[in-house]
Design a protein around this nucleic acid. Structure first.
Lengths: 225, 225
DNA sequence: ACCGTAACCAACTATCTAGTTGGAAGTCAA
DNA sequence: TTGACTTCCAACTAGATAGTTGGTTACGGT
């Protein structure tokens, strides 16, 4: 096994382990075992458990930036898309959440580039909104990401607030529709986007929009907790 | 020291410890020490570290329900209010977050009553929105909570997306305004009172037209499942 | 005072865990 | 082959940690 392959195996194993148990809960022995590599390699290549976590997070943050990329021409459907992605890749959002709890002020490697890249994305969103790039557009982007991710971040709260029907495939679909509608209203986009459906200020039909959404799921990514 | 006082001291200490370090990261010795109580009492009264965490969470969830209570007559300012509360009580949101990562399907004690109580709140929100209580109103409530909490849940993401100015008192204030505007637009409530002078100026665009948008949707076929 | 019950605690233990060590097995060049 | 270098690993260690134990102190009734 080459050096790189070993490192990759460790990173992949660490990713699952950290996603499932967080930093404190993760066990280096489990990581090594799952990677089929001797534990000592973790220290040889990464230095410590925590540094390994940081390396994992750097990759994850980049992926995150990738996903969140290109709000494209339709900020509304954008939210649906992110939502679906998070739903299909729970471990991504779990890692983000662990990281946020760990949150130390000192930046992760490459933070600066990530910020820069993100600024580019915000420009794209600004274009989609027909506005100039500005901190406020960036805040909108932050908010859209939050809306899409929230149901997956706080499942128990969801069950408390929404009730039993929060969960399940059906529940997720309903939530998705709700989010898309919410954002549509917030951004004041009455169907100007190419979507076929009539925006209907007046409720009723409801379902119409969800259909337009282009696929929803695609379950992938095993790694359940 | 009476039994109750000891238990309370332990719960309070546990709350800080768990908020700071999570379940796996928390140390029972630290909890006992901070409570000024012998560690063994934790096992005597609560059974285990994990059960202690559950007890803490039951209290926290109740508080959460309390805060989230009474959307009252103005759903828009409601979001600002929750936002401020979370900002002022970070440990509450941290505990919620740890818990969500821990998430085991089996409900915490009293989950049912919490759900019931929350349903009552949703009714209040429905009234504020001028709509009938429905699962969709509950979803709106979930979304509003998410909007208010998101910046505190994902500070690092905030810094990446929004940039340096995300943090600090100024940053929080800006975010708050943004959120309130966003919700106002989404719920189609024109500004009544003199809230929020629009600092960013950005705001305007949406508010106007969004008013028309009115409500979002109500799913036709009642409840699934 | 006496007794039973319940709160309390110092010290202990069995286990677990991050991190280390010293050397074996490959790799490549001369 | 030799020798320098790198990747790899089984076994080890020092310290931490959740959970126990056995006994002591406070308390409330009779």
């Amino acid at each position: 096994m080459s050096k790189e392959a070993t490192k990759d195996a460790l990173l992949a194993a660490a990713r699952s382990e950290f996603a499932a148990h967080g930093i404190a809960g993760a066990r280096v022995d489990r990581i090594a075992e799952r990677a089929g590599v001797n534990k000592e390699r973790i220290y040889g290549y990464f230095g410590s458990k925590e540094k390994l976590f940081d390396r994992v997070m750097e990759v994850v943050l980049d992926e995150m930036a990738e996903v969140v990329a290109m709000p494209g021409d339709d900020p509304v459907e954008y939210v649906g898309r992110i939502h679906d992605f998070y739903l299909a890749h729970p471990e991504l959002i779990r890692l983000m959440t662990w990281e946020s709890l760990h949150y130390r002020e000192d930046a992760l490697e490459g933070q600066h580039e990530r910020i820069a890249r993100c600024a580019a994305k915000a420009e794209s969103l600004a274009a989609g909104l027909g506005r100039e790039p500005s901190p406020d557009v960036a805040r909108t982007m932050m908010t859209l990401i939050g809306l899409a991710a929230w149901p997956m971040v706080m499942p128990r709260l969801g069950r408390i607030v929404v009730g039993e029907e929060f969960g399940g495939e059906e529940g997720h679909l309903r939530m998705r529709e709700h989010l898309v509608d919410f954002v549509r209203a917030a951004l004041g986009r009455d169907a100007d986007g190419g979507t076929a459906e009539n925006s209907t200020g007046s409720t009723d039909g409801s379902t119409g929009n969800a259909g337009s959404a282009g696929n929803a799921e695609e379950s992938g990514d095993g790694d359940a907790r």
